[in-house]
Design a protein around this nucleic acid. Structure first.
Length: 459
RNA sequence: GUGGUUGUAGCUCAGCUGGUUAGAGCGCUAGAUUGUGGUUCUAGAGGUCGCCGGUUCGAAACCGGUCUUCCACCCCA
């Protein structure tokens, strides 16, 4: 009985054309990572259950794919626990491995495990798939790639400055104009919460504020009230709802708003340093913008927060993000090591480039020249030329079967191969090849050397 | 995890308030064309109507469940 083929939801197959385009993005990102001094590492696709759980909040725990233990895993569960049918307490008993959820936590684990062989500050990049048991929708998959660059072991704000430049360099190279690099600082958010007397509600406060552009001022206020933030407190942050102006103007208003908060002032100072530096150094095409509503990844970011928005004309969420975490390795026992990093969302960048038709036409080009097959004798004659072309770096191939000419020509056509060669008895006698240009339809008789030269020039 | 949406030929989709033999375009195969592709013409192959169950004399169509697609929420790249 034939099985109906399928793949799990939220996963995808990639065609040769898609792989070529994805590789183009990956190669571009890698090139710039390397030019900024980052070195590649790789970590296993699954980690110990305990390494991942509890690192991404309650929501994150739910979205981690757990791997069932091998063997008769249920036999070791006691009846009482089993009878409770409670996933949170049962899961750790039947699973001790889980699929990688992001690249940051495995990196923190890596740093701690390899601390004696690492030279600080350590700059690494990592391009690997991650998995989330999320419900898929546009630009959201259950298996997707992250491209991360992080530095650990340096508190210097120059790192943040470098990351802004790195974002700019990559998106500029990809020809993606009009991206906005949004920046915020956890200390500013803390400061605001402190000033309005809602320090204990920092997370609720920022999650609500983060939705400003989505649900509007009234929606945010409503949510804040529901979360138990007082009306008086909300009144104090009124300026945030209409936070306009240049970056410098925003910094000045923040200074004023946060004058009574030490932590808040520190945050503004950090942000000012980065903005000033970028202002002096300049960016090629990206816009750098302070966005006080930015609150992503709040579970571990402690300083800078980055997020990259696609050009306004594309309906797509963030295509990159990152931030600073002062003590990420602390949970694995290595204290006082600060890290800062950014991530590129490969799958979403792909969709944006596709949408704007920004992939170079050459990325998916394959074989340049196809030799038609008229029989074994002729094929052998062709293979000699094929070999020579390949030695000269030209992608060439012979049609494997002595099929009808129409079929072979059609094959070349479908694959958009620009040249075909017809070589039969006549050509073999004269030691030449009939070279046909598939675009113009022109044909000419050339010897192997002339053909190689012509193809080399064509490329 | 919550709410909605989608599924018919390889692909994109028709298919009337349930009615007997489920269609189109594109693609595919063959021929017109024995060493010349794209265009044209002719013929042909190809479907458990996502899956399971129910209602009915009768289900692609109605109902329930399930899987899948896409969307919103939650959250996030």
């Amino acid at each position: 009985m034939a099985q109906k083929p399928g793949i799990p939801k939220g996963t995808r197959d990639f065609t040769p054309q898609e792989v070529a385009k994805r590789n183009y993005i990956i190669e571009t990102v890698k090139k710039h990572f390397a030019s900024f001094g980052f070195m590649p590492i790789e970590t296993p696709s699954f980690e110990n259950y305990d390494t991942l759980m509890g690192k991404y909040g309650e929501e994150g725990d739910r979205l981690i794919f757990k791997i069932l233990n091998s063997g008769d895993f249920l036999s070791k569960v006691n009846d009482e626990l089993y009878a409770k049918k409670e996933a949170t307490s049962l899961t750790p008993k039947i699973s001790e491995k889980a699929l990688r959820y992001d690249l940051t936590v495995p990196f923190a684990r890596y740093v701690v495990m390899h601390q004696n062989e690492i030279e600080l500050p350590f700059k690494r990049y990592q391009i690997q798939p991650v998995w989330r048991a999320d419900r898929p929708q546009k630009g959201r998959f259950r298996e997707f790639f992250q491209c991360d660059a992080d530095v650990v072991g340096s508190n210097s704000l120059w790192q943040e400055v470098e990351f802004v430049q790195l974002y700019d360099a990559v998106f500029n190279d990809l020809g993606l104009n009009g991206v906005t690099i949004k920046m915020n600082n956890r200390k500013i958010l803390s400061g605001i919460a402190e000033v309005i007397g809602a320090k204990d509600k920092l997370i609720d406060f920022t999650v609500a504020l983060d939705k400003l552009d989505k649900i509007g001022e009234d929606g945010v206020k409503k949510e804040m009230l529901e979360k138990g933030i007082s009306e008086v407190a909300i009144e104090k942050v009124q300026p945030l709802f209409s936070f306009e102006g240049t970056n410098v103007e925003k910094l000045n208003s923040l200074d004023e708003l946060l004058s009574t908060s030490e932590e808040g002032k520190k945050g503004v100072e950090e942000l000012r340093f980065i903005i000033d530096a970028i202002h002096t150094l300049g960016l090629q095409q990206a816009a750098l913008e302070i966005d006080v509503t930015l609150a992503r990844g709040l579970n571990y970011y402690t300083g800078a927060i980055f997020e990259v928005a696609a050009p306004a004309e594309v309906p797509m969420g963030s295509i990159g993000g990152g931030g600073r975490y002062d003590d990420l390795t602390g949970i694995f026992g290595l204290k006082n090591v600060s890290g800062v990093g950014i991530s590129f969302g490969l799958d979403r960048i792909y969709l944006v480039l596709e949408d704007l038709d920004l992939f170079p036409k050459t990325v998916s080009e394959t074989t340049k020249i196809l030799f038609l097959n008229f029989g074994d004798k002729e094929a052998m004659y062709c293979m000699q030329a094929v070999k020579k072309l390949r030695e000269n770096g030209i992608k060439a191939e012979l049609y494997p079967d002595s099929a009808k000419m129409k079929k072979q020509m059609n094959y070349a056509n479908k694959r958009e191969i620009p040249f075909v060669v017809l070589a039969g008895t006549k050509e073999m006698e004269e030691g030449i090849y009939t070279l046909k240009n598939m675009q113009t339809g022109d044909q000419e008789e050339v010897d192997a050397n002339a053909m190689t030269e012509k193809l080399t020039k064509y490329i």
